[in-house]
Design a protein around this nucleic acid. Sequence first.
DNA 1: GTATTTGCAAATGATTTGCAGTGCT
DNA 2: AGCACTGCAAATCATTTGCAAATAC
Lengths: 135, 135
Amino acid sequence: MKYQELLKQHRLKATPQRMAIIELMYNAGHITIEELYQSIVKKFASISLATLYKNIHSMMDVSLIREVKVPGYKTKYEIEKSEHAHVMCTSCGELKDISLNPSSLLENRQFDLAGYKADDVAIVISGICPNCQKK
Amino acid sequence: MKYQELLKQHRLKATPQRMAIIELMYNAGHITIEELYQSIVKKFASISLATLYKNIHSMMDVSLIREVKVPGYKTKYEIEKSEHAHVMCTSCGELKDISLNPSSLLENRQFDLAGYKADDVAIVISGICPNCQKK
DNA sequence: GTATTTGCAAATGATTTGCAGTGCT
DNA sequence: AGCACTGCAAATCATTTGCAAATAC
């Protein structure tokens, strides 16, 4: 079970709750706390929201997962993977990865960063997804 | 008083509370609800948080102000102005505009937007500001 | 004068905390 | 065994709502 390894690599204990969180997040791609809880209680009747929140934070602390704040919607979470940007559909709420590499933007152009030393770039493009365009 | 005009242009009634909100937001550049409230009560002892929230939403509905969601911090608000990106200091929390034009990025390069029709691009660069680098 | 806005208090929603019991390694 | 994790209940913090009185136009 690879999720177990993933947790150990980040020096977190591999509890069943955590493995379930990672599995669901991995399958969903992006998920809110709310959605995560709704899904996880089906397999794990006794899990509490407090546990979810605590684990989300532990995993963020070790950069195993990442929060994605999107305009007008609830924060979603994703497994950390290679850098990418996001497109969000303002009609149906779908959030999707796109392959734009945020930090390559910084390298290729000389933006005036006002003296800041950049660590991370978050890009969220809002628009209408192909499906909603049809309606 | 130009704030009055600004409100009328957006078909909102120019109440003193709203003018105070805009003035403070304008001076601060970026401000959280919290900070806005702390400042505004000094001049407007009787204002309520409910009024703040209601007005923030009215003004967002007519695109007079805009919310800026930043990783790890509270949402901030700013007066809508020409497109720009943001740098945020992860040490002191300062948020600053930079002149990078988000939608020009879309034009200059052909990103694969997975069929999305883009309306808006939000870019937040996290890093360390010049001041905090010294410490 | 009328429709909108304000401010209050209460409701709702989201997140955090303390603590006793449990479980991973 | 020992420390970290879980789940509960309660606390805290954030946001929204209903409504009567006040106000912009």
